[in-house]
């Protein structure tokens, strides 16, 4: 009997090892792929960031000179500050709209799918199309503002992308317009996972709709909510396409972010080493964001 038990344990252990091994074998292609497309380029970027290199000539090792230059580069810091503003913008406005949209949609049955599709469509349209659409709508001479001005309604004919005061926020608005529908769908899916009993109890207790949202919905979707916040913070670091297409970082660097600054350094100025240094700092910022979330999670935060 004892032999049988030992034997069974032995079989189980062997099975477990085989199982673990097969897992690693199946993971191997993905690991290999990531090594090729992420790890090796990342390590190469770190090396390039310590070189003066046009991307074409022979690299010249300069140590940390590119990073020293970054410290004294006002446009770099300006760009970084715009990334921070961009992140705050996306952590608030689209998230609030996404939550509200999902909560309101969760309460209706008829035509819900129509609304979901309508909200989601901008997300699947190419950024080039979205930006051209909004460039036309906000055009200073034949956009909505100009049309309203012709009707005698003043105050809306502003040069959203042409003013250094509004360019960054204008681009962020267009990008969030395409993005918030995605959040609606994500939050709506999460809301359907919240136990209906909780809502019933809340209703019996006399909770208002806002109270149900505040005390049942939000805690119920907290993991999803926090995950989207994390992703927004990570995605905000390499923000590029909408800014590049609408303002290219201008006017006067008013909408410059790290991504556009890096691109211009690399492709207009042929300063690939310096661009790589900017890229390394972007990777470090992303790593810090992830690290903060990991630490919070280890401290027991339900995220």
């Amino acid at each position: 009997m004892a032999f049988k038990i030992d034997s069974r344990v032995g079989v189980t252990t062997a099975y477990r090892w085989r199982n673990i091994l097969s897992n690693y074998i199946f993971l191997a292609p993905v690991v290999a792929l990531n090594l090729i497309v992420i790890v090796i380029p990342s390590l190469t970027s770190i090396y390039i960031s310590m070189n003066k290199w046009s991307g074409l000539n022979q690299p010249e090792f300069v140590g940390l000179a590119n990073f020293e230059r970054l410290i004294n580069d006002p446009i770099y810091w300006k760009s970084l500050s715009h990334n921070v503003i961009w992140t705050i913008f996306f952590l608030t406005i689209p998230v609030f709209m996404g939550l509200m949209g999902a909560f309101l949609l969760s309460g209706i049955k008829r035509f819900q799918m129509v609304y979901r599709v309508a909200f989601f469509i901008p997300y699947v349209i190419a950024s080039v199309v979205n930006t051209e659409l909004w460039r036309t709508l906000l055009h200073p001479r034949h956009g909505i503002g100009a049309w309203l001005a012709k009707q005698g309604i003043e105050g809306f004919d502003i040069r959203v992308f042409g003013s250094k005061h509004t360019a960054l926020y204008g681009v962020a608005f267009v990008d969030s317009w395409h993005f918030w529908g995605f959040l609606v769908i994500v939050y709506l899916a999460a809301m359907y996972q919240v136990q209906p009993d909780l809502y019933e109890v809340a209703i019996l207790e006399g909770a208002s709709r806002f109270q149900r949202f505040r005390h049942v919905t939000v805690p119920g979707i907290r993991p999803t909510l926090v995950f989207t916040l994390l992703m927004i913070m990570i995605w905000s670091v390499p923000a590029f396409d909408y800014i590049y297409l609408l303002t290219d970082g201008g006017p006067a660097h008013a909408s410059e972010v790290l991504g556009t600054y890096l691109y211009n350094m690399s492709f207009f100025r042929f300063e690939v080493g310096y661009a790589a240094a900017i890229g390394v700092t972007m990777a470090l910022i992303t790593a810090c964001i992830v690290a903060i979330f990991v630490i919070l999670r280890r401290r027991g935060w339900e995220i």
């Binding site: 055009h139 200073p140 040069r159 042409g162 003013s163 360019a167 303002t247 201008g250 006017p251």
Partner: peptide, 17 residues
């Protein structure tokens, strides 16, 4: 027309104007 217009207008706008 203004600096802000300059930053807002593109090639086809210039020609059309």
């Amino acid at each position: 027309g203004s600096l802000e217009d300059y930053y807002s207008l593109g090639g086809s706008d210039n020609t059309a104007m």
